[in-house]
Amino acid sequence: MIRKFFSYLIPIKIFKKKSTRSKMIEVTWANGELVLDTENTNYSYGSLQRILRYGLRNIGYDKILEMEHILLLGVAGGSVVKTLVNEIEYKEKITGVEIDPDMIEIANQYFNLNQIKQLKVVIDDAFEFVLKTKEKYDLIIIDIFEDTHMPNFLFEKFFVDRICTILKDDGFVLFNTMILDEAHNVRNRKYVTEVNPKFFQTKMLPRIEVHNELIIINKVA
């Protein structure tokens, strides 16, 4: 494909749509791959896929292959789903929660997300879903952004406690955060201190991208 070839020289935008939730959604050929972006940040594939792959590798692919149910809060184009299914060869259930139906429509059209049979997509607010769910999960991936903004509820103790409650013993939380200023650094460090060390091990991974920091929580069995 000629656009794919030229994308190694210059990004080639092939789709653009206004969304009520995400403002502007764009699909672009960049460095030979399709990526999903909003106005100011990468949402799926590209650098974001590298970041979450790094987090999954830190948890351990062997451990992930033994899991029965993974919850993804924030689906966007589904790049982490593709990493789980195509690279790690994870075979079990994945539930993806996405608030923006426009995002899922684009993910299906350009990234074939609807062809992944083990994935169930729920259009819902992540906060509401986490309150309602009766399931427990082996891995909860939190990857929620509104362009460059992260909703405040993600860092509130009530939400952290609820996430930890729906996690199985020896389960993991992989939380992708955005750091744009010192206040965000302080926010992340406060977040880590609020996870009960008696029942959970928490670590922040060294950054591989300037503005993203991954936090991993492990529920000690």
Rank of each mutant, 00 (worst) to 15 (best):
E182R: 01
E182V: 05
E182I: 02
R189A: 05
E182C: 03
F175V: 03
N185A: 04
F153C: 05
L174S: 07
R162V: 00
E182Y: 10
F155T: 03
V173C: 02
D181E: 09
T165G: 06
N185H: 09
R162P: 01
L167W: 07
V173R: 01
F175L: 09
N152A: 12
F153I: 06
L180T: 12
P151D: 12
N152E: 15
D181P: 02
V186C: 08
L154W: 01
F159N: 09
F159S: 05
I163L: 15
A183G: 09
L167R: 03
V186D: 12
D161F: 09
F158K: 15
V186M: 11
K168A: 08
H149G: 00
F158D: 11
F153G: 02
N152R: 13
N152Q: 14
K168M: 03
P151V: 06
H184N: 11
R162W: 03
I179K: 06
M150Q: 15
V173T: 05
C164W: 05
I166K: 06
H184R: 09
M178K: 12
N188S: 13
D181V: 00
T165S: 14
F159A: 05
T165L: 08
N188H: 12
F155V: 07
V160Q: 14
F172G: 04
R162K: 15
R189D: 11
F175M: 10
A183S: 14
F172V: 08
F153N: 02
D181A: 02
M178G: 15
F172Y: 15
H184Y: 14
